[in-house]
Structure formats: C-alpha cells, structure tokens
Design a protein around this nucleic acid. Sequence first.
DNA 1: AAACAATTTATTGTCGACAATCAGCAATCG
DNA 2: CGATTGCTGATTGTCGACAATAAATTGTTT
Lengths: 229, 229
Amino acid sequence: MAPTAAPTKLQLVQSNSLPALVQVEIEQLILSGELAAGERINESDLAMRFGTSRGPVREALRGLEESRLVRSEKNRGVFVREVSVAEADEIYDVREALDQLIGQRVAERATPQQLRDLEAVLDEMDRATAVQDVKAYHALNLRFHDMLVDFAGNARLTESYRLLTKGLLLYRLRGLQNGGGLPVSNTEHKAVVAAIAAHDGVRAGRLLRQHAAASRARMHKAAAAAKPK
Amino acid sequence: MAPTAAPTKLQLVQSNSLPALVQVEIEQLILSGELAAGERINESDLAMRFGTSRGPVREALRGLEESRLVRSEKNRGVFVREVSVAEADEIYDVREALDQLIGQRVAERATPQQLRDLEAVLDEMDRATAVQDVKAYHALNLRFHDMLVDFAGNARLTESYRLLTKGLLLYRLRGLQNGGGLPVSNTEHKAVVAAIAAHDGVRAGRLLRQHAAASRARMHKAAAAAKPK
DNA sequence: AAACAATTTATTGTCGACAATCAGCAATCG
DNA sequence: CGATTGCTGATTGTCGACAATAAATTGTTT
C-alpha cells in the first residue's frame, strides 16, 4: 500500500496542481460554512485570497460543480448549493443502500487492528457524549463513517459515498443541526462494530443501514421542530 | 412546470455555458472511443477542434476529471482513464447495491405509461437479438437501464448510477465486449419488468441485482476468454 | 557504439486584458 | 404615478501571450 501516513504540504504542491489545491481550499470554505449555502461566489475575490489569477479558481469551481457542491448560472456566477429536505431525503435513500454494502464488506474484511481503531473512536465519542460536546461528536462521527467506508476496501464505493455525504453535510450546515440523540446514535454504532467483530456481514449490513435510516429520521424530527409551519 | 418538451439549440447555448458544452462533447469523444483509453489528450488540439481557446477546454477537462473519466498528471497532461478488471469489479459491487434499490423503487412508483415504455424497449431488444445486432442491443440496453433509474424518481440516485456506469462503459471500450449472452440478458430484463408490473418491490430489487451480478459474471467470462493467461 | 550531457521542441500552467452580459438605478414618457 | 427605456458599475466569459516544465533530439565523450 502507498504511504498514506502524512503527505507533507510540499509533496502536495508538487503532485497536485494549483487548481486542485484551490479546489480543496474552496471546498473547506464551503463545508466550514464560511461560504454560506445559497451565497454567490465571487471569482476575483477568491483569486485575490489565494494569490492566483481567476483561471485556476474557475477550473476549481468547475470541479466543485461536478461534485455538486456548487451550481452555476451562465453569466450570473456560481452559487453554493442549497440542499433541501427533499433532496437530503433522496441522498439518504441512496446512502442507506450503500451503508448496507459497507457494513457487509467491512465485516468480511476487517483486520484486528482496524477493529481496534473503530473501537477507539467509539470510546472517544462516548467521552464527547458525556460532556455534551456536540461539535466534537459530529467530527468523530464523520471520522467513524469515513473509516468504515475505507475499511470496506472498495475505492469506487468510497468515492460514491463521500460524494453523497458531502451533500448531506451541506444540508446540515443550514443550521438545523439536531441537539439530542447522541447517546442513542453511538449505541447504534456499537451494535454495528459488534457485528463486524463477529464477522457477521449480513447483520452488520442490516444494522448500518438501520443506523442510516435512524439518522434520517432524526434529521426529519429536527427539521420539523425547527420549522413547525 | 417548465416546457421540457424539446429544448431548441438556442436555448441550450443560452443556458449552458461554453465549457459545459465542450465537456459533453469531449465526453462523447471518450465514450465513443475516438479518444482511446490511456491516450493523452492535447488541449490545443481540442481547442482548435471546437474553435475556442484552451481556457474552456481546461475547465471541461477539470469537470471530466471529477467524474473520473480522465486523470491528470501535473505538467504532463490529462489522460483518458483506463478501467482495469479489478476496478470494474469494484464498480459492479456498488452497482449491484444501487440496482437493487432501483428495482424496488421503480416497482413502487412505475406508472402504466412507464411500464409500456419499458416493454417497448424490451421488444426492440428482442428484435435486435433476432438479427444478432450486438451494437443496437448494446445501445438499447443502456437506454433500458437509463429509463429504469429515471423511473426510480430519485435525482441523486440517477446521478450516482450514471457516474458509475460511465466508468463501466470505459471498461467495455477496451474491446473485450462479450459476444453471446444477449438472449439470456433480455430474459432477465423481462423478469424484472414482470416484477415491476406486479408492483413487487422486493422481487424487482432482487432480480435487478441478480441481473447486474450476472452481467458482471459475463464480463469476467469475456475477460478470461480474451486473455487466457 | 553506448552512455551521458546539452539543446531544442512541444505542451502545459498561469496570467492580465478585453469583450459580453447582467443587476440596479435614473431618466423619460405615457 | 407607473412602466419602460437607457445608462453605469460590477462580474463573468473568453482569449492570446508568456513562463515553466517535461520529452525528444542532437551532440559529445569515452
């Protein structure tokens, strides 16, 4: 396997081209919420900010458009995408199917070391739950699911899954981030990991799918609470 | 609803920007095999060909890179992607999961009109099989699965699925397109449509997944036959 | 003749400039 | 007074030119 340990920034600049660098930078801006959903993106401003000309920025935006993080209107500019509840619902539909596949594959292939890594994250999440640190829990949750899809050992699956979850992330940023549900969420995680440890692919797949479905239900609940209408 | 009937060319030029147009054009070049897998793409040549400067071409290539149809090496250029058997295998793994979801959803939502459309394509495929027109069958097969994912009524699912199948298309172009198996393939199609007509989501999902698995097996068989070693 | 070094050529990467287009406002006319 | 028309500033779309890099070629030396 390639040395995935810690690619230095120098290596990044040498291997990746400038537009690629700018693309991940803008992506961070969007995912962190600094560029709000729906907001229009000014090419010149970004170019200034990164110390480049508008060319690389435009190329980066085209990449982000393809990954559906922005949408582009001719002669009007590119906008940070807004993900509606309906669209998030669609994403969850696909995600549930993929999560089932992920659970199954991970249960079949997980090494003892990978299992230990998963359990370590689980512990950290327990600690975050104890102190009600929602932000930390959220980050750990992302990391947990990221590890799972990685351990499934299918690059295309990883790619599809990441693309999907990015869209979900965009929705979550709309402010209606749920409050409760952390303990129950982690309980579900533990059940999944237990099935993986038992190398029970069918059960792990089913549980991970159910976890996604529960997550979707929590989203709906939060949305309904935020907008009683 | 907007007039989706027949978008005139004028509307297309007005709504879509030049880089987007160039992108689909290059995509056609790749999918048709005019730009062979592994081949290096010359920006200036393409720009000349489309009568634009290199800017729009570069933007289009960045989009194609994001959709994994090309890969890009810094200071060396962009290359049409080659999809190995292993990678095609990975894609099929994901595709099977999505196909199951597609079958289920279509069985739940399909309208009588949509069912008739599907059956019409089935008939055409029968006719293509009768005269051993592999090329026509291939095109119809793509159309059939395209219709299915559309009828599932989930835009994100469509998007993910199309992205995946494009990769598969790229593999098929490597020449080892199977010869036989057309009749059996269409028999599978018919079983799927029958389940859809019965609005039996579970069965349709299972059958469509099995169809994808069988298709994968046929690919392996063809690959083994082409390269016995 | 083979291996290495220097040079040339082709191609990509980046930039600044100009043209095209749009949103907003002001002036005009009914 | 409202609507329409014509400016105006800002922003995007596109281009041609130049710099940086890699590949190919040639020349040189042993």
